[in-house]
Design a binder for these strands. Structure first.
Lengths: 337, 337
DNA sequence: ATGAAAGCGCTAACAG
DNA sequence: CTGTTAGCGCTTTCAT
C-alpha cells in the first residue's frame, strides 16, 4: 500500500499553508526563499509525490493521449510501427503527456473516451473508431493516412508520389520488366504505392504483367514468398527490377536472391521504402524511398497537444513528400533477353 | 475545448441523483431498470464521459500501470520487446488497466510515481529506477530479469539453462568447434546465456577460443559483423556450429552464410533463441531455444494487478525454463578437418 | 508574500 | 432502491 503523504502533511511539516506548498510545487516565483527551502526539505523528507489525478482534476486538464494502432499480425515487427511508437513516445515525453497505448483489432468498442486526444497510427479496418471518437468530441490525429471523408486531422505521406518515384527511377535506369511486392493493400500506404507505381509505368507505356504484381502484407514472410516466385521465373520473363513496399521486405528479397544465386544488383535491382537504417548494413546498400515516420508521429502529437489545449481550432491536414535515396541496389538492367 | 458535461448534468436530465448516475456508470446491480434506462439515455444524449481523474481521485485507487522499457538502440526491432509489449497490452486490455508506456534511457528521474504499479521490461542500466520505485512504495514487477539484490518481484527465464541447452545439443551432435554470437552482455539474458554455454562446453572439455566468442548487441547488424568475421576464417578454425542469442541474429547469420557461400546446415549448424515464428519461413527451419516472453509479460501484469489490489502481499518470484526446439538448422559436423 | 476557502467531478458511507 | 453528504488532493481566486 502506497502511503498517503498529501500536500497537507508537507504543509504541516514545513509550517506553511498548503497553498504555499502548491506554489512551490508549481514553481511560482513569488514565494519567499526561506519557505521554498522549508517546503522542499519537507517534500524530500516525507517523500511526497503530488497526486496527479488530483492535480488534473483541479486544473481541469487532461494530458493523457491514446495511441491506437491496428493490431494486424506483424505490425510490430515493422519499422513503421516502431518508428511511430518512438515518435509518439518522444513527443509525449517532452510534452509531459501520458500515453496510453492501445492495440486494436478493428472494431472493438475502444474505451478511450476519457482521453484528451487520440493518435491513430494508420487506420485499417477501424474507421469506425475514428468516427466514434470524432462524434464523441475527442480530438483526433490520424498518422500515415490521408482521410478525406471524415472531419479529422491527419499527417500523411504522399504514397502515390512514392510509387511514382520508384517507377521513374527504375524506368530512368532503363528497366522495362519490373515487378512490385506490395504491402497489405488494405492499408492506404500499400494501395497508393502500388497505384502510383502502376500509373507511372502505364504512362511510360511499360507493361506490368499480373504475375509481376505480388501482393504481400508487409511481412518478411510474404516478401520471401514473392521473391521465390519471382526468381523462379525463367530468364525471359523474370523482372530485372523489383520495387518492394518496405525496406524490410526488400531486405528479405535480397536474402532470397542470395539464397537462390541471383545477384543484387547485377541480376536484379531492388528499391525499397522507408529508409530503414537496417538496410545500410546488408550486402548492398539499399536504394529506397524515404518517408519521415518519426517526424510525422512527433508532429502529430504536438499538434494534437495544441488542439487539446485550445491553441488550435481548425483541422490540421498535411501530406508530406517522400524522397528517393539512391544507394547501391539498383543499376541498369543487364543486356540479356 | 471538450465540453464539460459532468455527472450533474446527466443527473439533472435523467431526474435522479448523481449517486444513481454513478451507480449506473459503475454497473451496480441494485439500480431500478427504469432509472438505468433514463440515465443511459441521458448519457448518450449528452455524450457524457466520466472524468477519469475525478474517478481515480475519489476511488483512491489507481488502475494505471507503467511499462518501462530500456531504450537502447534497436530494442524495438527485437522480437523480445514486441512480444513483451503484446503480452502486457493484452493483459491490460483484459484487466481494464491503463498502460502508460515509457521508454527509459537509464537514469532519467522516471516520474511515474502516480502509477498503481510498474512493469519493468528487463533492467539494464536502470536498476536505480527500480530501487527508487520500491522505495516509493510503488508495486513493481520485473520481467525477464532475475534480481536477487532488491526486494522486488520478478518473472525471469533461466538463461543459464538456455545456454546450457544449446551447448549440450551441439555437443551431442558431435560439434567440437563452436562459436557464439552474444546479445548485449550488459543484459542479464546475454550474460547468462553466454555463461551457461561456456560453462557447459567447459565441463565437456571443449575449448571455446576467444575469437569464437563474438560480442553482439541483439541487432542484426552486430550479427552480420560477427558472421562475416566467423565465415572468413580459414577452414581449419572456422566453427562448425554457431549459437546465436536471438533468432533474429541467427537469421541474419543465415543470410550472411548464403551470401558468402556457406551452407546451412551442411557447412555450419545454427541454433537461435526465442522461437520467433519468423524463423520458420527462412531457407531452413531454425533450431532454437524457446522462451515464453508473451506469457511472462501477461502473467507479470496479472500478478502486479493482484498486488495493487491488495490480493497479494508477498513478492512473486519465478524463473521459467526455456526449452529446446529442434528444427532443421543443425546437423552433425561434416567430417572434414 | 501568504493563507482561507471554494471548488474540480466523482465515489462511498450512511441514512432513509 | 435512492438520495444526502462528506471528502479524495490539489489549484485558484480573493483577501490580507
Amino acid at each position: 500500500m502506497t502511503k498517503k503523504v498529501s500536500i497537507k502533511d508537507v504543509a504541516r511539516r514545513a509550517k506553511v499553508s498548503i497553498t504555499t506548498v502548491s506554489r512551490v510545487i508549481n514553481k511560482f516565483p513569488s514565494v519567499d526563499k526561506k519557505n521554498v527551502h522549508k517546503v522542499e526539505e519537507a517534500i524530500t523528507a516525507l517523500k511526497y509525490r503530488p497526486n496527479i489525478s488530483a492535480q488534473r482534476l483541479a486544473r481541469g486538464a487532461n494530458n493523457t493521449i491514446g495511441l491506437v494502432m491496428p493490431g494486424y499480425p506483424g505490425i510490430f515487427h515493422s519499422f513503421f510501427a516502431v518508428e511511430l511508437l518512438r515518435g509518439v513516445g518522444h513527443a509525449c515525453e517532452s510534452l509531459r503527456l501520458d500515453m496510453v497505448f492501445h492495440i486494436t483489432d478493428g472494431n472493438a468498442p475502444l474505451n478511450l473516451n476519457y482521453l484528451g486526444g487520440i493518435v491513430f497510427a494508420d487506420i485499417i479496418e477501424n474507421r469506425k473508431q475514428v468516427q466514434d471518437a470524432i462524434d464523441d468530441g475527442v480530438h483526433c490525429m490520424v498518422i500515415n493516412n490521408v482521410v478525406q471523408d471524415m472531419a479529422v486531422s491527419y499527417i500523411g505521406v504522399n504514397n502515390l508520389k512514392g510509387g511514382q518515384l520508384a517507377a521513374e527511377y527504375l524506368l530512368g535506369l532503363g528497366h522495362r520488366r519490373v515487378a512490385v511486392v506490395t504491402g497489405n493493400l488494405k492499408t492506404q500506404a500499400g494501395f497508393d504505392r502500388l497505384e502510383g507505381f502502376v500509373k507511372t509505368l502505364d504512362e511510360a507505356k511499360v507493361e506490368l504483367p499480373q504475375e509481376h504484381v505480388c501482393r504481400g502484407d508487409w511481412s518478411r514472410r510474404s516478401a520471401r514468398q514473392a521473391a521465390e516466385f519471382l526468381f523462379a521465373m525463367e530468364e525471359s520473363s523474370r523482372p530485372t527490377a523489383i520495387f518492394a513496399h518496405s525496406d524490410e521486405m526488400a531486405l528479405e528479397i535480397v536474402a532470397v536472391a542470395y539464397e537462390m544465386g541471383v545477384r543484387v544488383p547485377e541480376d536484379v535491382s531492388i528499391v525499397g521504402f522507408d529508409d530503414n537504417p537496417q538496410a545500410l548494413y546488408g550486402p548492398v546498400g539499399l536504394t529506397t524511398i524515404r518517408q519521415p515516420i518519426f517526424e510525422m508521429a512527433e508532429r502529430g502529437v504536438r499538434i494534437l497537444h495544441e488542439m487539446i489545449n485550445g491553441k488550435r481550432e481548425e483541422l490540421y491536414r498535411v501530406i508530406l513528400d517522400p524522397e528517393l535515396v539512391i544507394r547501391d541496389s539498383c543499376v541498369p538492367p543487364a543486356a540479356r533477353s
